[in-house]
Design a protein around this nucleic acid. Sequence first.
RNA 1: GGCGCGGUAGCCAAGUGGUAAGGCAGAGGUCUGCAAAACCUUUAUUCGGCGGUUCGAUCCCGCCCCGCGCCUCCA
Length: 471
Amino acid sequence: MALRFYNTLTQELEGFYPLQNNTVRMYTCGPTVYNFVHIGNFRTFTFQDILRRWLRYRGYQLNHVMNVTDVDDKIIANAAKEHKSIGDYTAVFTKAFFEDAAALRLEQPEHVAPATKHIDVMANAIEQLAAKGCTYTSEGSTYFRISSFPEYGKLSHNDFSGIRSGARVDVDEYDKADARDFVLWKARKDSEPAWETPFGEGRPGWHIECSAMAMSYLGETLDIHAGGVDLIFPHHENEIAQSEAITGKPFARFWLHAEHLHIESQKMSKSLGNFYTLRDLLEMGYEPEAIRYLLASVPYRKKLNFTFESLKAVAKSIERLREFELRLASAKLPAGANEEISERSREAIRQFEEAMDDDLNTAEALAAIFEYVRAMNSGLDENRFQEENRWDAARVLEVFDCVFDVLKSSGSAEAEQAGSLSEAEIKAAIDERSQAKKARDFARADQIRGRLQEAGVLLEDTKDGVRWKRK
RNA sequence: GGCGCGGUAGCCAAGUGGUAAGGCAGAGGUCUGCAAAACCUUUAUUCGGCGGUUCGAUCCCGCCCCGCGCCUCCA
């Protein structure tokens, strides 16, 4: 079965292929930089990263645009509180976001698009909407008239035909003609940041940013648009309305939405205050790879229940894989190749690919890897491995890691520094201990082992000699 | 109320109309001078409840119970 994704628009699993050539044109909703983003947000960004990597594995080129919302109510309010310009204010959190993303090994999209750098594109989109009669102004602000777009609701599968103006309009929304209408352009208020446009001085509404930037970078119809489930309505629904009202063409062919990360059975969110930032977890001593693995290991359409127990468990899982890699590298093997091992390796890759092709079923893909590792550990135990088979196993791990990217330890560079023992020193100590063991001076041997352990170096006695690793 | 997601072993979590992947934890074992580490084996007669369809359902249908999300800013 070929690559397929669940499309929120059609509510079906659909075979995926890009519309133009071999390049996937993809747009994802990025962060609003008014604060540090939390790991719930990163669950979605990690999903997007896995998606990127798998598309590339499947031979596609990527043209991926991610927006950065750097002007909105919260940003304006927070910046004012700190007596900073919004630019100075958002620069801090934008930088933090990309640092965190790098720590989680999230690839950079081909284009990162800050909203404030694309005001002209948005203004142009609003003018096109106005020319089509889809807008109206009220108190200096410009609104999108939902009644001008009959298909409104097709993404969230809501029927809005019954909702008419006057049905129930919130007090502070008295200036809208229809309760569901949304603002395209907000009139300037007091000293708020504002931009000059033909339809007045002000700033963009949130939804227009994504429509305008997506189409300006990627054209009228995108292959994939992705984000968190909470964006389905109203954000993505509104994007569809604006974009399709302008072009008359489908805005995006595939809509992919990641479920939320939960904590204590509730959505992790800023407003509930039940969140951890990546920085929080790193300070507690968790490895970024473990966090990445945890975020990636639950298929993206399932709620992911975050617990520290899980985080500790996945750290062990990663160790198991790294242990296998290490064992493979240090094993003494006879020359030649065992075809049975080679075939089992190819089988593992097939299973992994099949799982990933199935709407990125990472849980099943992981199962394929762990089953393989168990089989290969047995193979090593039973001396069925030969020299050439190293490559077979290395290839399996390589395929795994080009998606999950957790095998190489970023190994808190500090810890390695703190360990302070050089490789040569460690090797010398190991030799000394081996001599002591040979002389049956176990007290001496244990003393050396203890000293190394204190320095953060763990010894493992194996059939093929002494192995060590930093802890 | 409308729309949507889910309830599988101690925890996390796949999956299929034909009798339950994987990870962690637990138990047993191998290795070892002893350890540690590692590795191996093992762990749900059962898949929220009740009916129905079927030769057969955890998987299909109906009803019910429970949890969660969106409907307002939100990954």
